[in-house]
Design a protein around this nucleic acid. Structure first.
Lengths: 158, 158
DNA sequence: CATCTAATTGAAAATGAATTTCAATTTCCT
DNA sequence: AGGAAATTGAAATTCATTTTCAATTAGATG
């Protein structure tokens, strides 16, 4: 099994690459590079964790109080369209975003006590999923798999 | 693999049993049996499919125009609490309810074109999930797995 | 069966996250 | 530098979900 564990902030190398990719995307689509988009993308990539638009806005707002919530929201949507961010909705029904690399693709363990989100990928499960789909004559395009429970820390002191 | 396929309306036997279970739940909790609850539960169980509160309300409203949306909504919540209905949220972010039996537990194939929902259960996948959780020292309590793609009908004429 | 209390009902209002509107501002092409 | 088009931020809107509240009803008790 491929283990990712908790996300950590990406290195500056990857961040630079991703911001380059965003710039290309913008140019390609006839959109503009702006100070706001640059700062929001940087902060988002730096934080690295699954984060809501609201949470990211709060972080941004500490440093750049002139940047509004709507712009943060729209920039996350933009990052999603450009393939740099994934939109995820877990059991609390909030939309979270996470930095995404080209081939990146994984599932989640979610702690019902502390809310921590851990990532994993298990190819055996994916192969079985494909087999299940096939049995139904179903053409599988994507999937969503979440395990809810208690993380190592929380299961003990609970 | 255990195959359920699409849901179909339950037999009157099961419906009667479930309504009995609801009555017991109500009595147990000091709640009341009402005409509305009875009619809503019957219709919900008869339809059997994954359905939103809004959709069920529309059905109910055709036959019993005096029953309001709020009551349908609240009755579905009640069925959920009593263990007779599962609440599900798929990619469109709408809350759907489906009749649930005691041991019933399954995952979903969702057609991205026609929206049809098919159920399946694959014990091998579940075993692997448990193993993954274990590796992280995670205590798994429940899970959610959805495969999105195109169903047999839609994948051809698309 | 009448009474009483607490639960239920339906309409309307409130909530809250996500999205859109719009006038002012900024980007960036020429 | 000029100008068209995109962007921004605040406020407004949307839309499903949830709550409120006054009127009604269930059903336990006398």
């Amino acid at each position: 099994m491929k283990v990712f564990g908790k996300r950590t902030s990406e290195g500056s190398r990857q961040i630079t690459q991703k911001k380059e990719k965003l710039k290309n995307f913008l140019k390609e689509k006839g959109l503009k590079s702006t100070r706001q988009r640059d700062l929001i993308a940087s902060e988002f990539l730096k934080i690295g964790e699954h984060i809501t638009a609201e949470e990211l806005y709060r972080e941004i707002n500490k440093k750049y109080s002139d940047i509004g919530y709507t712009t943060v929201y729209r920039t996350l949507k933009l990052l999603n369209k450009s393939g740099l961010a994934a939109e995820r909705v877990f059991a609390d029904n909030l939309t979270r975003y996470e930095p995404l690399s080209a081939e990146d693709h994984h599932d989640h363990l979610i702690c019902m006590k502390c809310g921590s989100i851990t990532e994993f990928q298990e190819l055996k499960i994916e192969r079985l999923q494909d087999r299940v789909a096939e049995e139904f004559g179903f053409l599988a395009v994507s999937h969503k798999m979440e395990l809810y429970g208690y993380c190592n820390k929380c299961k003990d002191n609970a």
